[in-house]
């Protein structure tokens, strides 16, 4: 939920979401297209710098959010580097099991590249996620012609997440106040109770929501307009050209 808070309160909140999206997507493309470690790492550094120094996201918060995908990446790249069929750098040997574990040069190279690329791509997306509120991203998706059903589902789901969390929090507090989580057994029983209760409440809520939509003339389509945003030509030029240069560099530099 920190992501959401940052998205609404960063310095670049007022920048047109399209400009941020173009930049992030160009960087993402460049990171994925590059054949060397250098470009994706530059992109990762650039994105981190822009998110922290440009948009003003506190570095601690940034690190906390970025650490999760990064840890995941490192683990999976380790798996990529490890070989079971005689690599150049032996790690362990189990004669009884006829098992050789080693690093192979090729594997390491592959892992390095995969790590760099994914890091660049992840941080590009994180830049967009941390600087642009969900509603604006949805508005953007809508304006490029994403099917309406998707947008409607996203809009309603996103809103309901917070209502749901609120509801769950209240029930949990009420249970905790009556020692519902005092032991492991009780905790499981309380959780089960909460799940059942939430299901029932969700069904009632869905009925109420539907009634409220009908009361305002809901047909079979969720119609709404997003607030107007003005494009800024300098921003657009900067985002576009920086993105294209990075893509060009990614394509040009190899080995």
């Amino acid at each position: 939920m920190h992501i959401d808070t940052f998205a609404y309160s960063n310095r670049w909140r007022r920048v047109h979401p399209g400009e941020k999206a173009i930049f992030a997507l160009c960087c993402l493309t460049a990171a994925l297209l590059s054949r060397t470690v250098l470009i994706p790492l530059i992109i990762a550094a650039l994105m981190a710098a822009m998110t922290i120094m440009g948009a003003g996201i506190p570095w601690r918060g940034y690190l906390r959010i970025a650490i999760l995908p990064a840890a995941f990446l490192i683990w999976s790249c380790l798996a990529l580097a490890v070989s079971f069929s005689g690599g150049e750098l032996p790690l362990a040997h189990f004669p009884a099991l006829q098992l050789d574990i080693s690093f192979s040069r090729q594997g390491i190279n592959q892992a390095e590249l995969a790590l760099a690329r994914s890091l660049g791509a992840t941080l590009s997306l994180l830049f967009l996620a941390l600087t642009t509120p969900m509603t604006e991203i949805m508005g953007l998706l809508r304006s490029i012609g994403t099917p309406k059903l998707f947008i409607e589902l996203m809009t309603i789901t996103y809103r309901q997440i917070f209502i749901f969390l609120d509801m769950a929090g209240q029930i949990r507090a009420a249970q905790e106040a009556r020692l519902g989580y005092a032991s492991a057994g009780k905790a499981i029983r309380s959780m089960a109770g909460m799940a059942g209760n939430i299901l029932l409440r969700t069904l009632t809520r869905a009925r109420h929501n539907h009634q409220a939509l009908l009361a305002r003339g809901y047909g079979d389509e969720l119609l709404f307009l997003s607030p107007r945003r003005n494009w800024s030509t300098p921003n657009l030029l900067a985002a576009g050209s920086a993105g294209i240069i990075l893509i060009a560099l990614a394509l040009a530099i190899h080995s």
């Binding site: 509603t135 809520r205 409220a212 997003s226 607030p227």
Partner: peptide
């Protein structure tokens, strides 16, 4: 909470008049 369907009140307010 049962009436506001969007996380953006601008979008929510535009809903009724658009339905008209």
């Amino acid at each position: 909470d049962s009436q506001l369907f969007s996380a953006c009140i601008y979008e929510d307010i535009s809903f009724g008049p658009l339905n008209l």
